[in-house]
Design a binder for these strands. Structure first.
Lengths: 242, 242
DNA sequence: ACAAAAGTGTTTGTGTTACACCCATGC
DNA sequence: GCATGGGTGTAACACAAACACTTTTGT
């Protein structure tokens, strides 16, 4: 991997992404695992080119990890504590991976670039999990979806970043009508409800929930969905953008 | 003025502050005017030292402009478009101020530092306007409070920054109970209402407003305020923190 | 007594919560 | 027929908006 230089990127400024997906009644986050000894997980992140806006940078990073464009995303907070330097973390990582990262292989300049203090802009994204093919990059061992209630141990302040992203998602969910970005093209009312229950981690009353969602007047009712189950077939709905 | 160097500050990252005050039934913003020909107004701003958090930087900048500590403040958005380089602006400023900024006086290195693209973190602050003594710095011609509805012509995207700050203020006002940061120690209910009306730029019904505010259970009722006017004297209130 | 503005109470409307019931489906 | 889950209706409640009235103050 080439060392980022100051010619390419804005220095000491990064973007961290909390990519939300929904599957099996669970709200999930896309998290790569670093290809080093020590079990390090880190949110998808990247830097900002000199000639791109921060939103463009976020979209580029997201496309690189999900394979899709046109993702709903929003910046939600800047993380700028002095303590969030990667130095301690990187030193531990190097300590545990001496074989791979001998002084000759991991050059000094690169180390300095990475270990400076970083201010990070938090973005969250909502994707249809079925459309995403998680892409691991050169320094990943793997990448996968994790239930937000059972995340692996993330580096630095990434747990706080996820928590803040979830707070913002909850605040914006009704206001901005963005939940449907997490669902496939068509869905039943029960699926919407289960999504809401996963996001807020609490149950909703079935009939009142249906009324509330339908009163938004953003759903188009389609044909019924016959599942073969011994009960009334639910309607399918589609989100009406306009 | 000394040129900021990369040893001191994080490069290409700045903080812009929207400092709100309230007086004469008007929501006001503290804005300095640059001491150059051409009538340039710019929001109070600054950079982030390597060893301070972004919140600390914002507090330092705010204290420098208002003379007070312990200010309510909150980051609300990052402005990171590529087009927001100060280069065009600075070139025009230099063109208009050749006498002051000859090539020898305005050194090249300083110019380059300032004219790189900047990503800026927006903070808004709420202050008791009576406690503030606006401080102009070396490059200001003046500094003053302007009615938010009649701001002078601000540089770059600073008008958008103000608009976004106001949006966030409106959203957070009830949620976080922060309006009282704009008022003096004691105040009447009418003053609270007029403040709300200034912020939302719309009238509220007197009795319902009073009920709503009192139901928050955050105000302590004090003695009456006799103004000498030929009408019932209003009560004074104080905000209860706890 | 009166005008002006503050304080408080009552009614109306709206939207949310809770409860109840009916309908379609496959065994 | 019956269990299961989906759809809909209504009553109860809480909250906000609209309306009305009373009280205090200085002239």
């Amino acid at each position: 991997m080439r060392a980022p230089s100051k010619e390419d990127y804005i220095q000491q400024l990064s973007i961290d992404c909390v990519i939300f997906g929904y599957q099996d009644k669970q709200l999930k986050v896309l998290v790569p695992k670093l290809n080093f000894k020590g079990d390090f997980w880190a949110l998808p992140s990247g830097f900002i080119y000199q000639n791109e806006s921060i939103d463009q940078a976020a979209r580029r990073i997201l496309e690189g990890r999900t394979g899709i464009r046109d993702i709903y995303l929003e910046q939600f907070r800047v993380f700028g504590e002095t303590g969030r330097s990667t130095k301690t973390f990187l030193e531990r990582l190097i300590e545990l991976n001496k074989d791979k990262l001998g002084d000759d292989q991991f050059n000094r300049k690169e180390f300095e670039w990475f270990t400076r203090r970083f201010v990070s802009i938090g973005y969250y994204a909502l994707v249809d999990i079925n459309k995403v093919t998680p892409q691991q990059n050169e320094i990943d061992e793997s990448i996968g979806w994790y239930d937000i209630r059972h995340l692996p141990s993330l580096i630095l302040d990434h747990h706080e970043i996820v928590a803040r992203a979830l707070d913002t998602l909850r605040l914006n969910l009704d206001e901005k009508l963005i939940a449907f970005n997490l669902l496939p093209e068509t869905f039943t009312m029960k699926e919407v409800q289960e999504l809401y229950e996963a996001i807020y981690d609490k149950p909703f009353a079935r009939n009142n929930f249906q009324k509330k969602i339908l009163d938004l007047n953003v759903l188009e009712r389609l044909e019924k969905k016959y599942t073969g189950a011994a009960n009334k077939a639910p309607y399918l709905y589609r989100f009406q953008r306009s």
